[in-house]
Every structure is written in structure tokens, then in C-alpha cells.
Design a protein around this nucleic acid. Sequence first.
RNA 1: GGCCAGGUGGCAGAAUGGUCAUGCAGCGGCCUGCAAAGCCGUUUACGCCGGUUCGAUUCCGACCCUGGCCUCCA
Length: 461
Amino acid sequence: MLELYDSRTAHRAPLIPARADRLGLYVCGVTVYDECHLGHARMLVVYDVLVRHLRASGRSVHYVRNITDVDDKIIRRARETGIPPSELSARMIEAFGRDARALGLLPADAEPRATAHVGAMIEVIARLLERGFAYRASNGDVYYDVSRFPTYGALAHRRPEDLRAGARVEIGEAKDDPLDFALWKAARPDEPSWEAPWGAGRPGWHIECSAMSTSLLGVPIDLHGGGEDLKFPHHENEIAQSDAAFGTEVVRRWMHNGFVQVGHEKMAKSLGNFLTIREALERYGAESLRLWILQGHYRQPLLFDEEKLVLARQARARLRGAFRAAPPDPEGREPTDADSWRGRFTDALDDDLNTPEALAVLFDLVRRVHRDAAEEPAAARRDVLLLRRLGGRLGLFADDPSTRPRPLADAEVEERVARRRRAREERKFAEADQIRAALLEVGVILEDGPEGTRWYWNDGP
RNA sequence: GGCCAGGUGGCAGAAUGGUCAUGCAGCGGCCUGCAAAGCCGUUUACGCCGGUUCGAUUCCGACCCUGGCCUCCA
């Protein structure tokens, strides 16, 4: 049974869905005003592994990951670049889709876009107005009345008085209280807007998640996730809205993943210290990136620099090496002690998604593969099959490198390897080394062993 | 200032009241024409000060330090 750290109680507890047959998961995805960076990649991979593990444990999961395609940043960026907001977001949604596929993410079961659910948001706002949790301000905006929600601050462990001290009111806002936040922003001539009973405008940021999560997953929602930075104010506000509108605790569990850190600060667009997913994939490849993320625990900060990614690439080579030592058992047989390995692996993930520990199990298995490869090849093949299956639960070993385009036909490589073998037999080592070096140039790695020379494509980066 | 999360060996990073994490790097050996891969062995830890305990890196308290949130942010 999976135990997860609960952001609200700050304790670990078993994750028990409201309905036995299905677990509803809602994750705050991305705002499409620019390309995604490694911080987003971490979030995406963490929840990807969570979903994989839940499903491998026999749970049916309904995974919803939203896309924010209307907000201040999109409007601002659109204005700066001269591209209409809808076109900008459409382009970035496309870019996001490419990143998601390249990262090897499972597709979400639903990927709702805010602009397609404005009707649902208007309904939630209407309920809040009806129940007296919201008010219409003089400037046409609709605000949430935080003073009406006594447990405000419970998720972020903050007291409203403390928050009020540092709160800021933007020019043009007409809040009764600095903590109040916009549910609906009155229409402006150069901004996208929708009709609503209280006047045309566009939704505030937080309301989309309250509306889309409940309309797609129902009430209550078993688990809601996102990055650490969304805890406050986004998720705090979402709780205030949803719980007030539906008259019940809508989200049963909250979880948050830690940041990607560059040097001593977090990776962020505003700090300019980011690397986009696209660039990182070009440099390191999806599997190395995933290993980099999974070698840290999801709640800890994850350090980024070139060295860390190179490290992950080495780790990947170690894992992949097992598949060269032995192919997975073609008849689908696992080792006789598979249950014990699977148990260790599952226990690690059940323990608040301890992916570093789960990877350690995989590496232990790799060692046994190499130990057995020569003497007990059948046993090694069974181990490799198990390795592939367990790795799959982390989203590893998905791509088949053999399908990649190669600069040289395999037959040509074979021919050169044979030529080198003859040179070695004649003790012409200079020539042999030259052939080996030339092959390395095009990405072929040679390894001489007792049973001859093995060669393989270097599947970096 | 308030609230959270941390401080583990050269780097990264887990677990754990008394015994192996794991990956990378280092060192010695095996293998080898050389190399690579691999196997075996091995060095370097638990921020600081008290307390509990037969025994603490692990539990408790104080202190020091780091990161994050408190404003848009995965």
C-alpha cells in the first residue's frame, strides 16, 4: 500500500481512494506562454512515475493534467511579441506535446484547457456568489472573500494575519481585503473575454482548477499534486473556492514536488537560469534525464548542472549494459526469486515514492546479471527480463534504440569488425586500433571478450 | 520575522538505535595485445553541543548553516 507525504498534515499516510475502483488524480500542469524547462520536466516525470506505480499496483487511475491557456503572462507575452494570445498558446501547447512525448510520459487521461471550460468556472463563481463567499467589486471584478473561509491558510500552514502583513494589492484592484483574490477579471478592450451573468471578463487563475478538477473527476478528488511553489497561494485559494462552492472538503490529499535548483537558487524563468526540456533532451536524452530526476527523492531539491546530467548518463550506461550482457528471457520467464526483488522494489516506491531506493534495487539486479552472464546465461536472461519489467514501472527502457537511424549499415560494421579481427590475428594492432577508432567516430563501440568482439551503437546522448 | 524542507564519505543520494545502500569517481587485483565493459576487494561519512540509552548518524532539546514559500512560478 502506497504511503505518501501529505502536504496538509505534514505526515505520511496511506493513500486510500474514496472509491475502491478508481483513483482520481489532478495535477497542475503548465501555463503555455513559453517553452517548458527542467523544473516542469521534474514535475511531469514525478507524477508519471506515481501513475505508473499506482497502476502497476493494480489501481485504476484517472489522471487529469490541466493546461492554463489564458492568464496574465500569456497576454503580456502576446503583447510583447505581437502574436495573438490564442496563437501563442496554441504554439506552446504543441511544443509541450512534443516535450511530453519525447520525455516518454504516459498520456494523461484528460488534458483540459482552461479556455474550453470557462462555462464550468462561471458556474463555480455563481455558486460562490450565491453562498456569499464572493463579491462583485466596483471595478467589475469578482473577488473571493477570504474572511468567510475560516480555515484559510491550513494547507500552507499560515495564519491569515501573518499573510495580510505582507500582502500586496495591485493597482486597479478593488479588494475589500488584501488577501481576497480575483475569481473573475472584468473585460478590457485588448484582452480575451467571455460573457458572464455579472459582466464580460476572464477567469482568475485559481478558479480554473476548482472548476476543471471537480467537473472531470467529481467530488471528492483523491489526490491533487503540483510543484511546491503552487502550494501558496494557488492551492490554498483553490481549497477555499472548491470547499466553499461544494460545501465539503473537495481534495482528500495534496502532494507537492520539490524544485530543480541551479547553484544555490531554484530554476526559474524569472531568474534566467533555466534549460528548456527540448535543449536538455538534445544534450542528454530522455532516459538520462529521467534517471537524473529519479535518483533524487521527489520532495528534496534536485541539483542541476552539467556534471549531474553526465552522472545520470553514466548511470544509464550501467543499466543499459545489462541488456548487452544478456537479452531478456525470450520465453517470459523470471528468476525464481523474482518475488523478493519485486517486493523490495515495490516497497521502495510504496514508501513515499522512494525512487532512489527503487533504482538501487535495479542496480543490484544489474550486478547479478553480469555475475551470471558467463556461467549461467539462462539465469542472466531471466534477470534481464525482470530488470526490464521493473524499469518499465519507472518509465525506463521504453525506447528501442535499434529503431534509430544509423550512419552506417550493420553489415558494413560487421565487415569492418571482421577486418579488424583478421588484423588482430596477424598481430597488426596499429591497424586494428585504427579500425576501432574509426568506428567509434561514427558511434560504434567495440568490446573484445573471450568469445570474440562485441559491438554496439553508442546510444547517447 | 512567520511557515516548510534539509545539513551523510571526492560528488550525488537513500535507509537505519548496534551489521551492505546505490550510482559516479579513486585505489588494488582478475580479464586483456592495448582499450572498453565486467567481476572481486578496498579507502574517505553521518553540521555543532548537550540529553535519553548498555549503545545514536538514527530518538529528544539548544545552537549554527543552507534552500524554498510568504508576489507570477512545476
